[in-house]
């Protein structure tokens, strides 16, 4: 009992909870906690924690849908990195997608967030309209871009009208297909970061930019020396999250190109889907998932280590 009391007192620093008569057990609110946690925890264990572990285990197995799984150690991973040309292509395509998508997304959303300045009338409406494709089904967005990209479609038709020449066959050419997928993805997705950056911009105290202006800093200097450092936490987290989600790109190439032409737009998740649910190699697909996960983890860790150099948390 003495121990319980001690714990209560330490815990009470800053928490004005009345030293109510000890109702519960020695463990504090243990009983209530189990009741509150149980519904969520059952689902969490069954549908989140267990599948994560299971996925790691499966990645070391040859696991067909029908028939018995057999343990093959690092076999799946060895196959991925040594003998599987499609995986190498998918890895490369995903890397190119990420390298194009993330910077363009960040620059466009940041640029527009700045552009939609307090002097713009009705800025709230601009922001939300740029956000619309971010919440409409990705399949729909991709289908619409299919009509724009297709030969004789809107872009081609505009090209012929203005320049008298056909536009490239965006989705039918292995050189254009991936950039076309990137463009569609940026169009669809930058609205999230636009809203995040807009909020961060609004939170910058006007007195600071005014002070900089009095010191003779122009708008560009004000932005890079005052505003950007102040919103660096937002920029950091937006970059981290955008990078993570861009590695998971699937629907856009699935709908627009089916991974083609050839394998020129096959991404990691697409290859995972094909391996697991079209070729029914479940262990192999799990191995791809873990390669993806490890890449994401490593890159996120690197960003967190690097943030000290440019992210300022103290206002």
């Amino acid at each position: 009992m003495a121990l319980t009391g001690a714990v209560r007192v330490t815990d009470a620093t800053g928490s004005p909870q009345a030293p109510a008569p000890p109702r519960g057990t020695k463990r504090g609110d243990g009983r209530a906690a189990s009741a509150f946690l149980l519904p969520g925890a059952i689902g969490f264990v069954a549908f989140t924690a267990f599948p994560i572990v299971a996925s790691l285990v499966m990645s070391f197995f040859d696991w067909p849908v029908l028939g018995d799984p057999s343990f093959i150690g690092f076999g799946n991973f060895v196959e991925l990195f040594t003998t599987d040309p499609v995986f190498t292509t998918a890895l490369l395509n995903t890397a190119v997608f990420v390298l194009l998508y993330v910077p363009v997304n960040i620059v466009v959303s940041m640029g527009l967030a700045v552009w939609i300045s307090p002097r713009i009338v009705g800025r709230r409406y601009y922001r939300v309209l740029f956000f619309v494709p971010a919440v409409t089904p990705m399949v729909g967005n991709a289908v619409v871009f299919g009509l724009l990209y297709t030969p004789r479609g809107l872009i081609d038709s505009v090209f012929q009208t203005l320049f008298g020449v056909s536009a490239p066959n965006f989705l039918g050419s292995s050189a254009w297909a991936l950039p076309a997928v990137v463009l569609m993805s940026v169009w669809q997705g930058f609205g999230y970061n636009l809203l995040v950056f807009s909020a961060a911009l609004d939170a910058v105290p006007p007195s600071l930019t005014e002070a900089a202006a009095i010191d003779g800093a122009g708008p560009v200097r004000q932005f890079f020396s005052v505003v950007l450092p102040l919103m660096s936490p937002s920029l950091f987290f937006a970059t981290v999250l955008t990078l993570i989600s861009s590695f998971q790109v699937f629907v856009q190439p699935y709908i627009l190109t089916g991974g083609g032409p050839g394998n020129s737009t096959t991404t990691l998740v697409m290859y995972l889907y094909q391996s697991g649910f079209q070729n029914f190699r479940l262990g192999f697909a799990s191995a791809i998932a873990w390669v993806l996960f490890v890449i994401i983890m490593v890159l996120t860790a690197i960003q967190f280590l690097g943030q000290k150099k440019w992210v300022h948390y103290d206002q």
Partner: peptide, 29 residues
């Protein structure tokens, strides 16, 4: 609420936030 293992349990929850959906879809299937 105060209960034993609260912080470590919360850390487990947090840890799973980073796991992409693709990792769990195969066993989930």
């Amino acid at each position: 609420l105060r209960f034993r293992g609260r912080d470590s349990l919360f850390l487990v929850y947090l840890g799973t936030l980073m796991v992409p959906q693709e990792v769990v879809v195969v066993p989930m299937f």
